[in-house]
Nucleic acid binder design. Structure first.
Lengths: 341, 341
DNA sequence: GTTAGCACTCGAACACACCGAGTGCTAAAC
DNA sequence: GTTTAGCACTCGGTGTGTTCGAGTGCTAAC
């Protein structure tokens, strides 16, 4: 559909606009081209590209900027993913190695690292999916009236909750309860936990009638999709982007990023392997329709899938971002599966 | 030092400016006053107040705005803390009651509630101080090469960490180690944990020579002052404030709030009981020198102290903020000590 | 198909006048 | 001595007009 030359021009326009955030004129492109063509010729081509919807003009007497369709074509056909420099790779490895024995920190840090590497706001969603298996339940009394309930999954996730006891703690009884729960529930996947609880040991449990409801509630809350696994880093990177100088545009974005649910919605459901890019209106959230969102998945052992990604203006350094995401998702997967880099 | 009348005028100026964010003129004050005085008289008084440093003029032909000294006097002598309406109190109680059995959530939520009530950015710092006592240590193996170490304090705080094992897990050995740690360390305060570990059971532990270092490291990291207990809510509330329309002023603030350490520095060391207000330059962080920070403490059982607070422009609704902080800090303290509202 | 030439468009930057809120000062009134 | 009316003055904000220049579209020539 697009001629070789049109593709070249489109690529140059996008590249230039990504760099400068200024509309690109025909003269600029003319100078950038190997095969010399006069600005007038470029103008004709650009005019055609505009007619086809790949470029647009902010106003008549300005240069062209890529349309979302233009970006889409660029990402699908023109872009060359950039590779990380050896220095950067070394730097990443160092960052991760420092705290190799703390997965929680790794995940948390990843948002920051990703943001530093790309200069966009980054996020990390922890492994979703409820196929994680229960590994251990523990209740630690804090005093007469309170206790901490802790739930550990085989993915290493720890969910905790402080509970107020209805009556003074009876250590032996609690221990008995916990032993029972551990005995019957360990190995069950989180999603089937409640069901299993009701079916299999409901009877035994009902002996302590008033307890039963509470235990059920507790399990329910402990297994509820948690917010804890959403980390956002480099929120303030958005402020650097000229397209968000305007507070009215900035605000909805920041509001969205402030809320873990907002981020989860932005990212959407986990998707196929590899790096995925959603440009502008391809995002469902209206707050993000002037943004592009690039995501990649990582796997932890057990096959659960987590997501890392960045959000920035549609004028995003796609090549760079895709390169970084690609590399980092592999690093994370390796880290979680082999336990080292 | 200040006459009755000057104090009244100062109060009116501050009140008006807090509402409108516009410099206040003599005519406005004249109209606001019970005892009628002409604008000219007010002008004279205002001129005196300016000379004494309580007011300032953005430029010659504008009204006056309070100086930081003016705010300070207002906060110390003129302000009347506002009480919450019964409706608001009911609302707060409802919000807390909903999740009464989840302290972690209570704390997390509090930042949001505080921000909603005041319309400023709010923060909650978890109990600091290292007098928390160790309650329980637990290690849950995840597989051959990994395990989760969990540490619970008597304040209900749970610290967790996923560790990569140097060699395949020997369940019995791990259990033995954990039992030993629990046996010897439970009841010790977090700060003395490491010391105690070295002194008292170092010998026994050294039998597993290569393990020793790792256990020490682990304890060290588990007890390191954690970031987890800093929650910020309503960051985007700052965007509403006219004084931060300017991106250049906004940015350092957001950067500070994004970082848990930044917030901790902003808040400073825990202070005496009651509500404390730091105005403008009274803040050490340069990023916050056009802000006021109001904080209050809450206590959880065991006497540990946590901090809640808000940060906003120096033109802050001090009366309201102080009222809310006062009430909320008591609610929290009650909640954590008696387990109910 | 390409390019030079040229008239045209339109936003950004700047200058300028105007408006009005608010001041400070002086002199008169209480 | 304190308060007030009167008045000239100040200064930022707003709206208008002008200029400038980057960039375009079109036409005609190569």
């Amino acid at each position: 559909m697009l001629t070789e030359r049109q593709q070249l021009i489109l690529r140059l326009v996008v590249d230039d606009y990504i760099r400068s955030a200024e509309p690109v004129g025909s003269r600029t492109i003319s100078k950038r081209m190997e095969a010399h063509l006069s600005p007038a010729t470029i103008r004709n081509e650009m005019s055609d590209l505009e007619e086809m919807g790949y470029l647009e003009q902010p106003h008549t007497s300005a240069g062209r900027i890529p349309s979302q369709k233009g970006y889409r074509f660029y990402v699908d056909h023109l872009l060359q993913p950039s590779f990380l420099s050896p220095r950067e790779i070394a730097q990443i490895r160092r960052l991760f190695r420092e705290r190799l024995d703390a997965m929680e920190h790794v995940v948390k840090q990843t948002a920051g690292i990703l943001s530093t590497l790309t200069n966009y706001t980054a996020f990390v969603l922890g492994p979703m999916g409820e196929e994680a298996k229960l590994r251990h339940i523990q209740v630690v009394p804090l005093g007469e009236w309170a206790a901490v309930a802790i739930l550990v999954t085989d993915s290493g996730h720890v969910e905790k909750k402080t509970v107020i006891l209805p009556d003074p703690a009876d250590l032996a009884e609690i221990q008995q309860l916990v032993d029972l729960l551990n005995d019957r529930l360990v190995g069950a996947s989180i999603s089937e936990l409640k069901e299993k609880l009701e079916q299999q040991i409901g009877l035994e449990l009902r002996r302590h009638v008033d307890r039963y409801e509470r235990v059920l509630n507790l399990i329910d809350e402990l297994t509820a999709p948690t917010e804890e696994w959403v980390y956002v880093g480099g929120t303030t990177k958005i402020l650097e982007q000229p397209e968000f100088r305007d507070l009215e545009k900035l605000k909805p974005l920041l509001v969205m990023l402030e809320d873990a649910n907002g981020v989860a919605q932005l990212v959407g459901p986990p998707m196929r392997q590899g790096v995925q890019v959603r440009i502008g209106y391809e995002n469902e959230l209206s707050a993000a329709q002037e943004c592009s969102v690039a995501t990649a998945t990582y796997r932890i052992h057990g096959g659960q899938v987590g997501i890392i990604g960045v959000v920035g203006p549609t004028r995003m350094e796609y090549g760079r971002v895709i390169g970084v995401l690609h590399y980092l998702s592999h690093v994370l997967t390796d880290l979680f599966n082999r336990g080292g880099l």
